[in-house]
Structures are given as structure tokens and as C-alpha cells.
Design a protein around this nucleic acid. Structure first.
Ligand SMILES: [Mn+2]
Ligand SMILES: [Mn+2]
Ligand SMILES: [Mn+2]
Ligand SMILES: [Mn+2]
Lengths: 246, 246
DNA sequence: AACATGATTTTGACTACCCAAAAACTCAGG
DNA sequence: CCTGAGTTTTTGGGTAGTCAAAATCATGTT
């Protein structure tokens, strides 16, 4: 006989919750950017094992074993040599973890005055330790916020997520009046750098020029400040166009 | 060769933290009540393995294995067939866990409006997930409180604990003007019952009569309410005598 | 001194992860 | 159709806990 990893009933462990959340984010992430139709194979939303192992931070074989166990408990569909996809049940659980993560981040920034660059690792642990009752108290205290400090949408208790599907700063024509809605990179250095330039959700900004030769995007902030971003950074700042007048 | 459970370097796991905290509480608890000198043997502060297994909630053999590992890492002194005692290093760690536990409880009650009967299990998980930075923010937000919702003293960041050493309600002479300082039973039912009677830390109370034949203690609250407690309950409510005047 | 009782320790086995490296598979190019 | 590079899976082994039950130990009687 060979070894079979088994997930017992009821309560998911922190590890299982993290795997599900990661699968969800990779699934959603690949749908968000410009592939999906551009993808060669028929792998609609399938997350490759190598990719999953990388984002979870484990060796490939570890991810394979875990995904088999998740499949046995009906949380994912697993196609060997192809990838994983969440089942409805798995997605529901993933969204619940994501809700906890983002509400915690928002609470830490809004109430406890922590910096948006440092709350992610904290929430990564707290999301597994907090009860539904406490989560509800936090949600109520914050007044049912829709987004976290990075502009990421907070799933509802019922498991719905707003899909803002905004444009990235790099895709926007010059001159448009914009508002930053979301920042896609959680790394502390990047977040601190953006905050230093005033580029947080809510910031009013206009693309002055996109210099494709130099690979830079020049911005004008509402504070009259000028900021120049590289294309990689400009791809990580999502914006919406602002209504004229107000 | 036989199996040796090993605690690796640096960060203690949640399990290790709970064992240390439990050993500390059993050690301190037995010193607090009326034994110590009344104890037959020379086991000054030694916690028996059976007792430890019971309070941690594991089988006796499990506790033995863990305690050996704790001893190997210098967190406890272990005398086979006699018991365990924390080393200075182990006590420091235990007090840090206890500090996290109690600050979290206080925060949940004061800020998030949870009931004092439900915060204990929540803190039992959160105490292992929270960073020192976040703990400091919580402490600051609360204004450096000295006690948690149950009146238990919060150890300082430096590892000092106030040892109030108050009298229990059952030991107090009738007529004295008293203030409830601490409630020693964390069970939700007990806490809810006491709260219903108005018996929380800060409550002003007087012993009207201690009926030893009936095994009851009759109280008068400052709200003029009369409450009758059994001796077991009266042993769990700690009080201090109030200064005359104010 | 010999027992009986209860507490403690040992043994053997299990769950839930994890990694390194070998084996197997896929797929694009030739 | 074959090959080789890159992925993925399998295999073998390790850590951190845990339990049930057998073996051992300490102690207070007779
Ligand atoms: Mn996590
Ligand atoms: Mn976030
Ligand atoms: Mn705990
Ligand atoms: Mn408490």
C-alpha cells in the first residue's frame, strides 16, 4: 500500500485554509489579467501544481499530496498533470478565509493604526485564529467596509465578492482624471514606496505621459506632486476614471 | 534506539506556549491557596504530570514526552516521577504568553464589546497568532491596563506580575466594605451567572452573613440587591477591603 | 517484607505536515 | 516518430504532536 494523506472532517487546518485561499487567488488572478482567452489550452481557471507550490511556499511534491487530500474531501477538482480548480464548496471556504484576512487588515490599519505595509503577515496568521463571532464584531465596528487597506474587495459573509475589474495605471490614456482604487503588490517595500509618493487607494491622479521608449509613466498627483513610475509598478496600481465636476 | 521528541530552535509552537502557560498557572495557583507549607513533601512548586496532563487536556504519556522535550530545551526542570517546574527562561516565556492572553481578553471586552464569558477561548487561540508589534499597539490603545476582564493581573512586557494576594469572599468577616477584584473561574456559565448578579471586578459588596451550617454566603450589593452564593462560588470571588470615606 | 493501588513512564501506532531526489509524464522541435 | 527539457508525481524519510495500553515505579497499608 502507498501513503494517502487524509483531511479529517469539520474544521479546516490553517494549512488547508491557506492552500484554498491561494488556489482561489491564482484562479481569480489569471482571469483578471489579459490571458483567459489568450491561453493556449482549455485549462479554464486550472492552477498548475508548480505555480501553487511556489505561491504556497512548499516543494512541488508537498503540493501534490495536499491537493489529492483536498480533492478527496471535495474541496477541489484535481486533474493529474493538469492542475487544480476549487469546487463550489472549496471556493466558499476560500472566500471566507479571504474575508477574514481582509477585514483583519482593515481593522489593524483603521483602528490600531498599523501601517498598510505591515498588516499582511499579521493577517496571514490571525485569519486562522479568529472566530465567526469576533469577525462579526470587527465587521460591525468598521461599519461593514467594502475594501481592505490595499483596495482589495472584502467578500461578504454570504460569499460574494465585488469584481471591480479596474484598469491598471499603465493602460490608461494620458489626461484622464483618475482615482487609485487598488494596489496589487503586498510587499512591504513596494507599499512603503507607493505611500511615500501618496499613491494609496483614494488618491487623485492623472497620467501626464507614458514614455514607452523609456518604460516610464509620469503622473501628476492632486497635491501637484509629480511622480515617475516604472512600467512594472504602473501595472500594479489600479484606477477608476473620475466623474467630471466634483 | 528510542524516540526523542525534540523542540527546535527559536520560535515556540502554540502547543509549547500552552504547556508553559499551564505549568506557570498550576505553579502559581498552588502557591496562592492555603497549601504550600501544608504540603507534606518538599515539592516546592512542582507540578505533577497527571495534573499537567489534565489541565492541558492530553493523555499522561503525551505530557511526559512534551515535558522531556521542554527540559531538553531548558524551559523546565523535570524530575521523573515527581513533576515539573519552570526554569527562569521558561517562566519568562510563560509570562509573555499570559500577557498576550490577558491583553487580548481586555481588548475584546473593552473595544469590541464581547462578553467576559466568551473571550477566553478566543484569546486561547489569538495569543499564539499575534506579533509583538500588534501587542504593543493593543496595549497602547487600552492605556496600559493592569488587569484583564476577570481581574487577572496582566504581566508587564518586562515579565513582572502584580501578586494581589487578595482574600476570597468566603474568608471575609461580615460587615466589611469590600470591592470585587478578581473572579477565578473562567467557565462561561459561572461568569454569566456572576455578571447577572452584578458580581464583576469593581463591584461594591458586603458580606451580610456566612451561614456555615447551610454552606452559604449572603451578600449585599451597593445596588441594595441581596445575593446568596454557595461556598464553592464564594471561594472563587476575590475582594479587597475598601477604605472608609469615599 | 509483601501487596495493592494509583501515578507515571514506555511502547507502538497514528495524523498532519514537510523535503529531497528519483521516476514518470507532457509537449514542443526536429 | 523521436528526443530532450521542464513539470509533475512518487518514494523514502523527517518533525511535531497525539492516544491506548502495557510496563514500571512510589507509597501506604497490612
Ligand atoms: Mn494564512
Ligand atoms: Mn490586503
Ligand atoms: Mn492557547
Ligand atoms: Mn482572564
Amino acid at each position: 500500500m502507498f501513503w494517502v494523506y487524509k483531511i479529517s472532517q469539520a474544521m479546516a487546518t490553517a494549512t488547508v485554509e491557506d492552500y484554498l485561499k491561494r488556489i482561489y487567488l491564482e484562479q481569480a488572478g489569471s482571469a483578471g489579467t489579459a490571458n483567459r482567452a489568450a491561453d493556449g489550452d482549455a485549462a479554464g481557471g486550472l492552477v498548475a501544481m508548480g505555480q501553487l507550490a511556489r505561491v504556497v511556499g512548499v516543494a512541488p511534491g508537498t503540493a501534490t499530496a495536499m491537493v489529492k487530500a483536498l480533492a478527496d474531501s471535495g474541496l477541489v477538482n484535481y486533474e493529474p498533470y493538469a492542475g487544480v480548480r476549487l469546487t463550489d464548496h472549496g471556493e466558499k471556504l476560500a472566500l471566507h478565509v479571504l474575508r477574514r484576512h481582509r477585514l483583519i487588515e482593515q481593522f489593524l490599519v483603521e483602528v490600531l493604526d498599523m501601517d498598510w505595509s505591515e498588516v499582511h503577515p499579521e493577517a496571514e496568521r490571525l485569519e486562522h485564529a479568529i472566530s465567526d463571532r469576533l469577525l462579526e464584531r470587527i465587521d460591525a465596528y468598521l461599519g461593514r467596509p467594502r475594501t481592505d487597506p490595499h483596495g482589495d474587495p472584502i467578500p461578504t459573509a454570504g460569499g460574494r465578492v465585488a469584481r471591480p475589474e479596474r484598469a491598471a495605471l499603465i493602460d490608461v490614456r494620458a489626461g484622464r482624471r483618475l482615482e487609485v482604487t487598488r494596489v496589487l503588490d503586498q510587499s512591504p517595500d513596494f507599499l512603503r514606496a507607493m505611500a511615500r509618493h501618496g499613491l494609496r487607494p483614494g488618491a487623485k491622479v492623472t497620467v501626464a505621459r507614458h514614455d514607452e521608449a523609456a518604460g516610464t509613466v509620469h503622473l501628476k498627483l492632486s497635491s501637484r506632486r509629480s511622480v515617475t513610475l516604472g512600467e512594472a509598478a504602473a501595472r500594479k496600481i489600479l484606477v477608476k476614471t473620475r466623474r467630471r465636476s466634483n
